[in-house]
């Protein structure tokens, strides 16, 4: 008997995306450029995070028409975003047949206390995290893939670096702990005990971990890969730059060849203007997307 929507099948698709770049796109034309550049997946959106930030107001799930058009245009997997806690938006995305749902802090949260029960869906979920406890809570709710939150729409990699370093340091710390300390560690991180035990034993998350939130250059992508992530999300960084096709391709190659400085030097040449960046301190704490999620 065939078994669909098993944990293996859900986490398995994320395993296949590793070493690749997932790009935010808002039109079928952009999706085609991403696929041509070698993206392993696209995130179908109505607006990229930089524009969501600029527009203000409430950001919601994209119009299904946009998502369907993008699904028809490319053969690579298509992801789409639902608001935190908005389980009906998630059901709609599942009905559309998207390949992954991002329960995302880039959109305005629909619930200020609870995330979606992601175990009850056939489509797998990816969620953002700033630290190990948050990552393990999301996995406990059924997320089959994790990404750092970073600070979306800024073109500033500092928050993604901070979140990746935090997760990695907390993983390393668990691996050196005697067993009797793990329950207290779980309590302090507010993380499920069984997942804390898994991380302590294996020295890694039980799912794939990508970097996201502020990646704008090939060097940024390689930096995140060297810090230990499995792959890259690029949001505004590509289609807010002056030459999206060229930059997209360079970021893809930098993600594969992240340990080859000669190659990275070549890839960084003549890319045109990167997206305009934002200093994190210039964003009021209440406007920081990374603070969303519980």
């Amino acid at each position: 008997m065939a078994e669909i929507a098993s944990w293996k099948v859900k986490t398995g698709l994320a395993e296949m995306l590793k070493g690749g770049v997932i790009m935010d796109v808002t039109t079928p034309e952009q999706a085609k450029i991403a696929e041509e550049a070698g993206a392993c997946s696209v995130m179908a959106l109505e607006r990229v995070p930089a524009d969501i930030r600029a527009a203000g107001g409430v950001a919601r799930m994209a119009d299904p028409t946009i998502i369907k058009k993008i699904m028809e245009t490319v053969t690579i997997p298509v992801m789409a975003k639902a608001r935190i806690g908005h389980f009906v938006e998630a059901r709609i995305l599942e009905a559309l047949g998207v390949d992954y749902i991002d329960e995302s802090e880039v959109l305005t949260p629909a619930d200020d206390l609870f995330h979606i029960d992601k175990n009850g869906y056939k489509v797998p979920f990816v969620c953002g995290a700033r630290n190990l406890g948050e990552a393990l809570r999301r996995i406990g709710e059924g997320a089959a893939m994790i990404r750092t939150k970073g600070e979306p729409g800024t073109g500033n990699v500092v928050e993604a670096v901070r979140h990746m370093r935090t997760v990695m340091a907390e993983i390393r710390r668990l691996t050196t702990m005697p067993k009797e300390e793990l329950m207290t560690a779980a309590k302090e991180m507010a993380a499920p005990y069984d997942l804390v035990q898994y991380v302590a034993e294996h020295g890694k998350l039980p799912v794939v971990n990508f970097a996201a939130g502020g990646i704008a250059t090939p060097a940024d992508a390689a930096l995140m890969m060297q810090l230990g992530c499995d792959g890259i999300f690029v949001g505004s960084g590509i289609f807010k730059s002056s030459d999206p096709a060229k930059r997209a391709k360079a970021i893809v190659l930098a993600t594969t060849h992240y340990n080859d400085p000669d190659m990275l030097a070549k890839l960084s040449e003549e890319l045109g203007e990167a997206m305009p960046g934002l200093e994190i301190s210039a964003i009021a704490p209440a406007d920081r997307m990374q603070e969303r999620g519980w």
Binding site: A2, E3, I4, A5, S6, G97, D99
Partner: peptide
């Protein structure tokens, strides 16, 4: 099919 039809057997 798409991911929703992925399976093990």
């Amino acid at each position: 099919g798409r991911q929703i039809a992925s399976f093990e057997a």
